[in-house]
Design a protein around this nucleic acid. Structure first.
Lengths: 406, 406
DNA sequence: AAACGCGTAGCAAGCGCTTTCTATCGCGAG
DNA sequence: CTCGCGATAGAAAGCGCTTGCTACGCGTTT
């Protein structure tokens, strides 16, 4: 039914090997042979059979991007940056081959010229939405391994649960062992592998001897490339943000943390507390509330904070979206921002700059991180030393924060 | 290097055929054989080789979802609804088989029990971000065809360009011919295929005879299943929205249309104009401005409209996001909403209900559409009669609109 | 003039799975 | 006691592509 390589070969009067080589462009083919083949391909509207070629070549052009919430621009920006890097390819075109003779770079893509003209080697970058669910995360990881994905990019904070962390680590190790490049983008580095190596291991090693053996075994694995990590400096960003408020004179700062049990939430909270501690400002538990990363959560949390401590002069939200909810809540309460209460967000999503008032926040290099992750995933950029890079956030001071005395 | 079926078979002391059957669960296997196989699978951390199985079975579990803007919640909501329907599967579990004897439905997924426990037949729903670019849309379509995707869901408005429309139609036809289910979700039905059949055809038929022959050829194709379409009634929704404003007494209504050359933009604009015409309200061109679907565009467009016609009493935005930008602009200009000017959006995204003031808008059944598209894509729901269903929007009257006289 | 190298193209052996067809076993029916 | 049938399991033939190796034709080199 479907058109196969053999059909194309027959029509062009060559062998399947030749057609294959024309399409993958990794072997010299005479110019007019190539032309005949390409004509046949176009005439028959031939499209490579991905599974077959993946099987034979033991490679695939699928790249998976896992995100926690597909509707959140935070992930959208990262994902789309990753995707852009995919198509940026190597500038290779069909049939350009390695033929050192013809300076000609082969047939270029003519618009509407047919289906096969997507350059060989073009990656299929796809995003998988875990919705923040650990199970779905694992399911996707397995599904991607099943597809023998070329690379997997995990974005955003991780769930902090020993069992899940171990499962993810194991899944990533398997993926890496299968030759899939793994990149963590905006996600903290994996913990030590330890006993995550064999999910079956009933428990950790019971004796020192066992432990040492295990340790050695781990070290021995030659290609245990710990995934490349591009982490955000959430802790530092939060700390600088809080320090900014402190420097303005705020002492009663409400903090709306993200969902519990996520690394991002913990890190930002730690940074916030570090700043308070450094300035000898007490931080009673009632000034911290947890909530989701959405506007409604910010709205509700702001009301709750106000109820708990009417003396609040500033509120820091888990992210910009929640911060907007906070502003809405305050407005509804008749409070002015920043006149009565200062508000700050995190991430610096596009809308933050042009909200009313423009949000003070911490700008995370989402675009840059995504782009680097994309290049790392395609092997087009060399990994940072130690396989880990930390991207810092910039404090963006805008109109939503001011001195509490004014 | 990688673990193969044969390895598992060897360890379980059975043939590869048996392992395959246990994993796909479509053939009776004795209970203890099955158990042995599953143990071996778990011990070896075996994960099916997707490409190989796709090749052999001539099926794939990849489902592509094309969206125009991954960062826009409009698409996020649809995409995540589609994805949810994928995992909802058939309730089939590994090894449940068709064995009519054991009522037992086989091994269930134990948390952390290993990688292979993703049920066979589970689809890998992935979203592809076209960024609104026609080329990327086509590239993705080809890439998905290459992967022999089980289904493809196209979401959101289409670009209105004859050439591109023809190319997409051709691509979808090829996809359908290859057995991929195609679903249009929130996208208008394809135009007539006409001369899109052969991209190579230099031009349309030049004589009546030719035309008739072509026509017949088209009709003859037996399995030319026009893609299943779930369209939104953008025209009707816009019309009702405008009528709502008219009924409140507005006569000078500014309209911020979406990007030019998109079906969604045109349909909504048509509905708006139909309402005006029906009420004999003139619609000078200067009251319509085009812009992107984002907040900044709404902000700028609002200012532009105000400049062009200070007598405006209401503004309708291309969507809710833009409407928020409009509100911000008006606020910055010192105008109250809806006191001085009414504002309305479109889509009813989650944040709209809790904006300040809550936005009057047209609620599109995004979730429902996505879910249906998902079921349609997996063949779990029977297509609507005529392969087309139109989903209507509900007018949500909230606080951002009021009578201009108040 | 024979040997060699280079540029091309074809042969054919898989890649790891699915599935049809066949073989085997146990057992009640004839 | 033998035949047939239902329930299982295995053998083996592909699925469509990639690629190492071989083959061939020519222009060079010794």
């Amino acid at each position: 039914m479907a058109v196969t390589l053999a059909d194309v070969a027959a029509r062009a009067g060559v062998s399947t090997a030749t057609v294959s080589r024309v399409l993958s462009g990794n072997y010299p083919v005479a110019e007019n042979t190539r032309a005949r083949v390409l004509r046949a391909v176009a005439d028959l509207e031939y499209v490579v059979n991905g599974p077959a070629s993946a099987l034979a070549a033991a490679t695939s052009d699928l790249v998976g991007i896992l995100v926690n919430d597909i509707a959140d621009p935070f992930f959208g920006i990262i994902a789309s940056a990753v995707q852009s890097e995919m198509s940026a390819g190597t500038g290779q075109h069909i049939g350009s081959g390695t033929n050192p003779r013809t300076g000609d770079s082969g047939t270029r893509r003519r618009p509407g010229a047919g289906p096969a003209l997507v350059p060989a080697g073009e990656k299929l970058a796809v995003v998988c939405n875990t919705g923040g669910s650990p199970e779905r995360e694992l399911t996707y990881l397995t599904l991607l391994q099943r597809q023998r994905a070329a690379a997997v990019v995990l974005t955003g904070g991780a769930v902090e649960d020993a069992g899940h962390a171990a499962a993810v680590t194991a899944a990533l190790r398997r993926l890496a062992a299968a030759g899939t490049r793994v990149v963590l983008c905006g996600r903290p580095p994996l913990g030590p592998e330890a006993d995550a190596r064999k999910p079956k291991a009933t428990a950790g090693p019971r004796t020192d001897l066992e432990a040492r053996i295990l340790q050695r075994a781990i070290r021995k694995v030659p290609t245990a490339p710990s995934p490349i990590t591009l982490a955000f400096d959430n802790r530092g960003g939060a700390q600088r943000l809080t320090e900014h408020l402190i420097s303005l004179g705020h002492r009663h700062i409400g903090y709306i943390a993200g969902p519990v049990g996520r690394t991002t939430t913990r890190h930002r909270l730690e940074g916030h507390r570090a700043a308070l501690t450094a300035h000898d400002i007490p931080d009673p538990a009632h000034r911290t509330v947890h909530g989701a990363y959405d506007r409604a959560a910010g709205y509700d949390a702001a009301l709750e904070l106000l109820r708990r401590d009417p003396a609040l002069t500033a509120v820091i939200a888990a992210n910009d979206t929640a911060a907007l909810g906070v502003c809405a809540a305050l407005r509804d309460r008749g409070l002015r921002v920043p006149g009565d209460i200062s508000v700050a967000g995190f991430d610096d999503l596009p809308f933050s700059a042009d909200a009313a008032p423009a949000l003070t926040t911490v700008r995370l290099p989402l675009q840059e991180a995504g782009a680097r992750a994309g290049r790392l995933a395609t092997g087009r950029e060399t990994p940072p030393p130690g396989e880990i890079a930390t991207l810092c956030g910039d404090l963006m001071v805008r109109e939503s924060t001011s001195s509490p005395y004014s």
